[in-house]
């Protein structure tokens, strides 16, 4: 099963490589990875999506918690949560397809953020499956470049991941 694990870790050089290294060292799987500092500059928040059965996920969270740089973590998929990913896509927009792309962008509630005579750059946010669906819809027109941030997430309700 797919899990989204969010980690608060020391904003120190080398901390990220310890987390990433752990996954390869222990043969765990990383689907997406997203990391940036938080409002507290001494902390970074890292969100990783991974796939594994309960036993594997238990090991992943235990080993992550063991890293000295990891301060706190939560498996967001254990409860209700909001999951978002941002994607920038360059798609061909020539002739009749130009209007078609615009219409599809509207349907997906995406935005065109840059324009040239031959292409549109589209910005779209949502969960991973929405982004996948948009790519699928654009495939016949011609996708030129894709930049995805990887999943970020937060728990619904009063639950807070902080110190």
């Amino acid at each position: 099963m797919r899990h989204i694990i969010s980690i608060l870790m020391e904003n120190e050089p080398g901390a990220l490589s310890r987390v990433v290294g752990l996954f390869s060292q222990r043969n765990f799987n990383i689907e997406t990875l997203n990391v940036a500092p938080t409002e507290d500059p001494s902390l970074s928040r890292l969100t990783v999506t991974t796939v594994g059965d309960d036993r594997v996920i238990e090991q992943i969270t235990k080993h992550l918690n063991k890293l000295i740089d990891v301060v706190k973590l939560v498996d967001l998929t254990e409860g209700n949560h909001i999951e978002r990913e941002l994607m920038l896509v360059k798609v061909k927009a020539l002739g009749a397809a130009r209007d078609e792309v615009k219409r599809t962008v509207d349907i997906f509630r995406a935005q065109i953020v840059d324009v040239t005579p031959s292409l549109y750059t589209v910005q779209i946010t949502g969960d991973a499956s929405k982004l996948d669906a948009f790519l699928q819809a654009m495939a016949p027109v011609g996708i030129l470049e894709v930049a995805r941030t990887g999943v970020s997430g937060i728990a619904r309700g009063d639950k807070v991941l902080s110190l």
Binding site: P13, G14, S17, R18, G21, Q25, I68
Partner: peptide, 14 residues
């Protein structure tokens, strides 16, 4: 050496 030893230490410092 911090990189080389990363998987075989409890922790490391520079």
């Amino acid at each position: 050496i911090v990189g080389v030893t990363r998987p075989i230490v409890k922790h490391s410092f520079s």
